[in-house]
Design a protein around this nucleic acid. Structure first.
Length: 446
RNA sequence: GGCCACGUGGCGGAGUGGUGACGCAGCGGACUGCAAAUCCGCGAACCCCGGUUCAAUUCCGGGCGUGGCCUCCA
């Protein structure tokens, strides 16, 4: 089956042929670990996990390398650490506070993403583990004339890169015209961006040829891709908001350091997510973290909900949508069982291979056989384990079973008034009863 | 201001130059003590205005609307 993917670089859907079918390489921008991840962060994690699974299915599980980084050098982290250090009674060094923040946040992220049904990437490199490589790349860029040092900073010289802006499709003139940036005096050009900047003693930093300092944000991805997968990879993914400046600058850095060899052959970007029709923001009070959501919903429901919308479309996250997703999964899980080697439906695979058209793939599952349903769910990363099992642990099953028994007795003596009363009482508690020839079962109402 | 997406039935959401997916909800029927669940069936949409065409929801132009990026952001 041919895989076709939309490439942001060319703005067209292209047939995907990896450089090396024995080692298909993809990189996705991971979280900045300063706070709990929100459901917007869940979108790329889930979307590219599906791509990872499709590639593994197509090229073999051992022939795909997936790297998702952890950004643990960042000014937002520094700000958070400074804040926390001030309130901290223990009087420990700020860098220890910072380390604690990134460790804890990353731990939560990692378990969140597993709960969403995502496979672990092959590598999860951290910025702090690749400073040496970043310094080396910066030195290369200086030698090649793509960067210059000034006042403890090192800046990328955008004018030297004639095709700068090719990914975002933006010319330097356009950008300067609409620029809202402070132009630092040491910059040759307003659009030049930071590769290295000085740190104060209470900020994280490393010694470098340009003094004590830390790397700029964009550099880590370029360096970590090189370190884990080499100069040119097959797919680079992330949220659409990263196209500019982050990915544009990655392209500039990596190509500058690698004699113009491309960084990634395919650039993929997922669309943005709104919550109940509004942009998610802390001030609107609709900021939903994955961690919080997992207290009310099985992770697979969020996963399914995400996949009902094509990854490039803007998506609106709603409770109503979650409920619908829950119902569909419940229904499917009730009729399927895990199979050792389930068949993958042709229409399903064709939809998925067409730029990850998950809504069409899901539609195909609705009309396929039960075995194909099991196969499709498996390929999409669903476990086929009853969702209710998790939810049922949270209620007093003994009391419910006793009520069901009482209702059964009432029904046996045709006291339907009493039996209906028991049923209504349970319903008020959110318990729905289902009668069948085999007896009465119950589930959590959604 | 510049650049870029999106606008499909009550809702979610694919797709296509011509017979208008799919799911949820709704309605009708079967089943049921009555329901729920399940099964069968049904109706219902392509933002507006031009253009191209035998034919446009689909292509082109304009408009309106929503959102994104241009500064940190999935």
């Amino acid at each position: 089956m041919t895989i076709r993917l939309y490439n942001t670089m060319t703005r067209t859907k292209e047939e995907f042929v990896p450089l090396d079918a024995n080692n298909v390489r993809m990189y996705v921008c991971g979280p900045t670990v300063y706070d709990y991840a929100h459901i917007g962060n869940a979108r790329p994690a889930i979307v590219f996990d599906v791509l990872f699974r499709l590639l593994r299915h197509t090229y073999g599980a051992g022939h795909v390398t997936y790297v998702r980084n952890i950004t643990d050098i960042d000014d937002k982290i520094n700000a958070r650490a400074a804040e926390r250090a001030k309130a901290d009674q223990r009087n420990i060094p700020i860098l220890d506070v910072l380390r604690e923040i990134t460790e804890v946040t990353y731990g939560v992220y990692r378990s969140d993403v597993v709960a969403l049904g995502c496979l672990e990437p092959n590598y999860m490199p951290r910025a702090t583990g690749h400073v040496t490589q970043m310094i080396a790349m910066t030195e290369n860029l200086i030698v090649a004339g793509y960067a210059y040092a000034a006042e403890g900073h090192v800046l990328f010289r955008v004018k030297k890169k004639a095709d700068y802006g090719k990914l975002a499709r933006r010319s330097l003139d356009d950008m300067i015209a609409g620029a809202r940036i402070d132009v630092a005096p040491y910059k040759e050009d307003p659009m030049d961006f930071v590769l290295w900047k000085p740190s104060t003693p209470d900020q994280p930093g490393w010694s470098s040829p340009w003094g004590y300092g830390r790397p700029g944000w964009h550099l880590e991805c370029s360096a970590m891709i090189e370190a884990t997968m080499g100069e040119t990879i097959d797919i680079h993914g992330g949220g659409i908001d990263l196209v500019f400046p982050h990915h544009e600058n990655e392209v500039a850095q990596s190509e500058g350091a690698h004699h113009g060899h491309p960084l990634a052959r395919f650039w993929m970007h997922n669309g943005f997510l709104n919550v109940e029709g509004e942009k998610m923001s802390k001030s609107l009070g609709n900021f939903v973290t994955i961690n919080e959501l997992l207290k009310d919903w099985p992770g697979e429901v969020l996963r399914f909900n995400m996949l009902r919308t094509h990854y490039r479309q803007p998506m609106d996250w709603t409770v109503a949508g979650m409920t619908e997703s829950w119902k569909t999964l419940e229904k499917w899980y009730a009729v399927t069982e895990p199979l050792a080697d389930p068949p993958i439906g042709e229409a399903f695979l064709e939809a998925l291979s067409d730029d990850l058209n998950t809504p069409a793939a899901i539609a195909a599952l609705h009309s396929g056989t039960e075995h194909e349903l099991a196969g499709g769910l498996g390929l999409l990363g669903f476990s086929n384990v009853q969702l209710n099992l998790a939810a049922k642990k949270l209620v007093d099953e003994g009391a419910i079973l006793a009520a069901i028994a009482a209702r059964k007795a009432a029904r046996a003596r045709k006291d339907f008034k009493e039996s209906d009363r028991i049923r209504d009482e349970l319903l008020a508690q959110g318990i729905v009863l289902k009668d069948s020839a085999q007896g009465t079962t119950w589930e959590i109402k959604r």
